[in-house]
Design a protein around this nucleic acid. Structure first.
Lengths: 323, 323
DNA sequence: TTGAAAGCGATACCAA
DNA sequence: TTGGTATCGCTTTCAA
């Protein structure tokens, strides 16, 4: 079914398309009589402006590309909510593209974003991504981009990350304050920067307390956590646990309840996105990485740089924000 | 920065834009010499076709609108993965729009989809949505639409739902087979069709076994589950639990471990999306509603009706698929 | 084998 | 206050 266009209305009313266009958006130049006539016709013929054509004309798609390494249940829903809340208000939409933890797919998605002329990009990098070479093209094409959560050390765009150092230290403090003497810390993929930063700060913090023993394990999946813990938990002297993420926490939780070790005096502290914790054991303690907040912040920063484009490289463009 | 256009290339090479356009897509009419020349120029000047303009010209946005009642951690990630997997392969993208459980917002999102000329819509309705009046416009405008998961009884489009009757019955059977005699069933919002269909079939099934007692509670939030269970669990004679969803299951789980009632001979059976269960108690049993599968199926059906548009109303259009 | 030109639906400048 | 017209970037028919 052909939809009514400006031209259709113009022909029906025997006036020009320019007049119709202006009447529809209450341009002051147009007489009230004409405005009325046009609006009435638009109403009766069910005229709907074609945003697609408008954006094309205005050279702005009003679309943002969101590229994430994977669609996880812990982080993605909250970050989507955060992003939506600021973008929708401003008339923007966004595509979700999942790299499925593949650097190649990430590159393809970037091409897709470029081809479809997104107005900006929000990207969280895959574990396979080691540098930001492939992002330079975006810089050349002057496509506003914000990197969030998973990033690399060299920044050519603004990036937004959680304050891993602070969070890991605070978790360490909680265990110490609870009087734990024999701590088991569970980390994720050893190669990730996110793991390393949490590891170093947690470890350093614990080391400041001489009487405390620290054991560390790395598990890049929830199942792996369970597997390792099945053995480790035979050591009943462990009195404190640290999980660096929701994924590791879930493995830990599963193992503890299996052996009925929850509800004991063993303390569990974790860095978490925050949605899940309310479903687990109420005695666990958390340091929250708020995905919603990251989403709103990232989207806001992106809209800012879309509205105030800068040419060349400024310091402000490569700022790292700690949440 | 202005991006290189077809016209730019044409001017540089002193040939027409039509020739450039055809050369770039290996049209048989074009001589190899010209093709080479054009492709080389395109390469050196970093030419990227403007999908936006192409789609505009072709009157197809290659965009699907995904409207969901809310962004939950249980269902949304898997359904997004399912949808992505089929759409991306076909060169389509999709917007996510969350109605935040508001009928008004749902209507607004539909307008948005219409305005931005999406090629099709995938929609799951809010709890507030009582009929499909507001969807008729889509029918008039011939916008291919599929309703999934949360739907209403009158269908003017194809819909895809989980087989609630079957799943609830199978869960009942599992409890019975385990020898449970005093069952507590936890349901969500009493007003939802999804609740009613599960309720009726579960109840009917249990009633077929005379010696079995069934208690039912309704809780429209995880917290509410915990609250109610805090009292109910004083009744130690309950030997079987049924949770109708991930949300209710999480409340149940939380309450059980709090009282160390997991790992006992009490049986827990639940209808679940499937991602979460592997993190909980390994003795729980599930009947899976696979979100990924629903996503792929819905997207596939949608692409079908985009490719084979039908005018008027056919029976096939209003089919209800049970997953 | 190539080019000219119309057109997708809207906007905005310049005239009148 | 209104109309004419070029234009956004590309595709596609019709002619040459």
């Amino acid at each position: 079914m052909r939809r009514t266009t400006l031209k259709d209305l113009a022909e029906m009313l025997q006036i020009s398309t320019s007049t119709v266009s202006r009447a529809l958006k209450d341009h002051p130049d147009i007489s009230n009589a004409v405005k009325m006539k046009v609006k009435e016709a638009a109403e009766t013929f069910n005229y709907v402006p074609n945003d697609f054509a408008v954006n094309f004309r205005k050279k702005s798609s009003k679309v943002i590309g969101l590229i994430v390494p994977e669609i996880t249940m812990f982080f993605i829903p909250s970050i989507i909510n955060g992003i939506s809340s600021v973008l929708n208000k401003e008339g923007y939409h966004f595509f979700i593209l999942s790299s499925n933890d593949s650097f190649e797919t990430e590159k393809e998605h970037l091409e897709t974003c470029i081809n479809s002329r997104v107005d900006g990009i929000l990207i969280s990098l895959t574990n396979e991504t080691k540098d930001s070479e492939h992002l330079k093209k975006l810089k050349e094409m002057e496509i506003p981009t914000i990197i969030f959560d998973k990033t690399v050390s060299q920044n050519i765009f603004q990036s937004i990350v959680f304050d891993n150092v602070k969070n890991a230290e605070l978790c360490a403090d909680k265990l110490i304050n609870h009087g734990c003497k024999n701590i088991l810390a569970i980390f994720g993929d050893e190669n990730l920067e996110i793991t390393q930063s949490r590891l170093v700060s947690f470890e350093n913090r614990i080391k400041q307390f001489p009487g405390v023993t620290l054991n560390i394990i790395y598990c890049n999946s929830t199942d792996f956590v369970k597997e390792k813990l099945d053995i480790i938990l035979n050591d009943d002297s462990i009195d404190g646990f640290f999980a660096m993420s929701d994924e590791t926490l879930m493995g830990l939780h599963s193992s503890l309840i299996k052996r009925s070790l929850n509800n004991t005096n063993k303390k569990v502290v974790s860095i978490s996105e925050g949605t899940l914790p309310k479903y687990l054991d109420e005695t666990y303690e958390y340091q929250i990485n708020d995905g919603y907040e990251m989403g709103t912040f990232a989207a806001t920063q992106l809209l800012n740089s879309i509205k105030n484009p800068v040419s060349g490289t400024y310091e402000a463009e490569t700022t790292v924000h700690h949440l």
